[in-house]
């Protein structure tokens, strides 16, 4: 991929507007840190990019190498080289991982993969994410621990070799060793030409993979962009300096406003939404 251009995208789900005129540009070779307080739209943006039907795009455009991404079906987007590592991958009972991986690889090529090549590649991938290969005969994600699910997402990324990988909190729930393992996989794939957009709440992963761009989502739009340093600063200081220095007000999500106390989220300054 050469570039991804997100222009003034607004979207809604179940009647709530989530993204509001959100814009972002990502170029080949970028490793973007996508940050923002809880519930401000990071996962939503990734899901809109991947085409999750739960989110209805109401205006704006997204182009991938000049092609209209929003008019493509979810599987077409995957075939164009898009990949999303899910924040919460669903269990798919009844579907055996091995069968699924084979269907997934075959969907990306003209001729079905030979059995020998398939077993070689999956064995290698299981090794690289340090998961027991016996999990291949289990049902997809069913009964996996949090960390195993995340490793299983990375494993699929390894098998598909995407051009643009969207990783949603892939580091949450990982132990320290797993974190450096996954960082090294990301670094190798970067060298091989994969572009990354990485959502995380911690600077540890960002430092290990050397992000070169930071985009901060506040209230459903990218409110601030900067280089890799910005991600580190937010991880250290939180989001309060956004208002002081950049006059970006972090409004709390109206829906959540009743039951979430100010202290419980990373938002340091909250402007209460006006009652309708």
């Amino acid at each position: 991929m050469e570039n991804l251009i997100i222009e003034n995208v607004s979207c809604q789900a179940e009647g709530n507007e989530i993204l509001t005129s959100c814009s972002l540009e990502v170029n080949k070779g970028d490793c973007v840190a996508l940050l923002g307080p809880n519930g401000h739209g990071k996962s939503t943006l990734l899901n809109v990019l991947m085409g999750n039907p739960r989110y209805e795009v109401t205006s704006g455009s997204i182009s991938l190498d000049g092609e209209d991404l929003l008019s493509m079906s979810v599987d077409e987007r995957s075939k164009k080289g898009l990949f999303m590592g899910f924040q919460n991958p669903p269990d798919v009972p009844g579907v055996v991982s091995m069968d699924f991986f084979r269907a997934m690889i075959n969907a990306h090529q003209d001729k079905p993969v030979s059995l020998i090549k398939f077993y070689k590649e999956t064995t290698q991938a299981y090794k690289r994410v340090d998961l027991n290969e016996e999990m291949a005969s289990r049902h997809l994600n069913e009964g996996y621990s949090g960390g195993e699910k995340k490793r299983n997402e990375i494993l699929q990324m390894l098998l598909l070799k995407p051009k643009l990988a969207l990783l949603d909190e892939i580091d949450s729930g990982l132990d320290v060793d797993a974190l450096s393992l996954i960082a090294s996989i990301i670094n190798t794939m970067k060298e091989e030409g994969t572009t990354f957009i990485i959502v995380s709440h911690y600077d540890r992963l960002y430092q290990l993979v050397h992000v070169n761009k930071t985009a901060v989502i506040v209230n459903g739009k990218v409110a601030l962009q900067g280089d890799g340093e910005l991600a580190n600063r937010i991880a250290k200081e939180g989001y309060s300096f956004l208002e002081k220095e950049y006059n970006i007000k972090i409004a709390k999500n109206e829906k959540k406003a009743n039951d979430v106390s100010i202290g419980s989220c990373a938002v340091k300054q909250v402007i209460k939404p006006e009652q309708k």
């Binding site: 579907v95 069968d99 969907a107």
Partner: peptide, 24 residues
């Protein structure tokens, strides 16, 4: 819906995804 979206996000068509889940 979430299962279908997950399978499709890996490149399987809607039809293939439904088949896998149903056979499964």
């Amino acid at each position: 819906e979430s299962e279908l979206f997950y399978l499709m996000s890996r490149g399987l068509s809607l039809e293939e995804s439904k088949k896998l889940i149903t056979y499964g």
